[in-house]
Amino acid sequence: MRKIISIITLMLMSMSSLTAQEWLTNFNEAKDIASNTNKNIVLVFAGSDWCAPCIKLERQILNTEKFLKYAKENYILVKADFPRKRKNQLPENLQEQNKQLAEAYNKSGGFPLVVMLDKEGKKLGEIGYKKVTPDAYIEILNKMIR
């Protein structure tokens, strides 16, 4: 019985990963994919283990099925995380990349910050946390493109 439950769980997990877009952490890889697919980049600056509004944004919007399904078809998702707890620290190369991204796209140092970029990395607009539906958030992001 345990084997059957385990197999079903694995199947469901693999099926859900087919519909959800993966969050990338390598910005150069994201730009390459965006260029090849002609999609804009959604770059999210977050403090995953200390920033309450960041955590709310992820739970209420960015990690919802509605947002992820839409994003898979329309955006390339990139997360620049800045965790503070020692156990959550990122590898040095990723920390350095995220620092450079913040210098280029988040000079104010605000968290969370969602930046819409074109496929070349040109900034089109930005937004922070808003207590809205995933549909309303998508609409706000799409207005940056037009």
Rank of each mutant, 00 (worst) to 15 (best):
T133G: 06
P91A: 11
N106D: 10
K122G: 04
Y105D: 11
M116E: 08
E103I: 05
L113H: 08
D135W: 00
K85D: 12
R84Y: 12
Y137D: 08
V114G: 05
G110L: 09
I127D: 01
N98I: 07
N93S: 15
Q100E: 14
L124V: 03
L113C: 04
K87L: 07
P112I: 09
A104Y: 00
N106H: 09
Y129R: 02
Y129I: 04
E92Q: 13
D135F: 01
I138L: 05
A104L: 15
A104T: 15
Q89H: 02
A104V: 09
R146M: 07
E120G: 10
N106E: 06
A102F: 01
Q95P: 03
P91I: 03
K130I: 02
I140S: 13
Q100C: 00
I127V: 14
N142I: 01
E139D: 14
T133P: 11
E103S: 12
N93D: 15
I138A: 08
Y129G: 06
V132W: 00
N88S: 11
K107S: 14
Q89V: 01
R84L: 15
Q95I: 13
Y105A: 11
L94E: 12
Q97R: 02
Y137K: 05
K85E: 13
G125I: 08
I140R: 06
Y105F: 14
I145E: 13
G125R: 05
K123C: 03
L113E: 09
E96W: 04
G109C: 09
K99Y: 12
I140A: 14
L141K: 05
A136C: 00
E139P: 00
Q97L: 11
P134K: 01
A104H: 06
D118H: 06
V115G: 07
K119C: 03
A102G: 09
P134F: 04
D118F: 04
V132M: 02
A136Y: 00
G109P: 05
Q100L: 13
I138G: 08
R86H: 10
G121F: 09
I140Y: 12
I145C: 01
P83S: 11
V114P: 04
D118E: 07
K85P: 00
G128I: 03
P83R: 10
E103R: 14
A136S: 13
M116I: 15
K99H: 11
Q89S: 10
D118W: 05
K123P: 08
T133Y: 05
V114W: 04
T133I: 03
K130F: 01
K143G: 01
L124M: 13
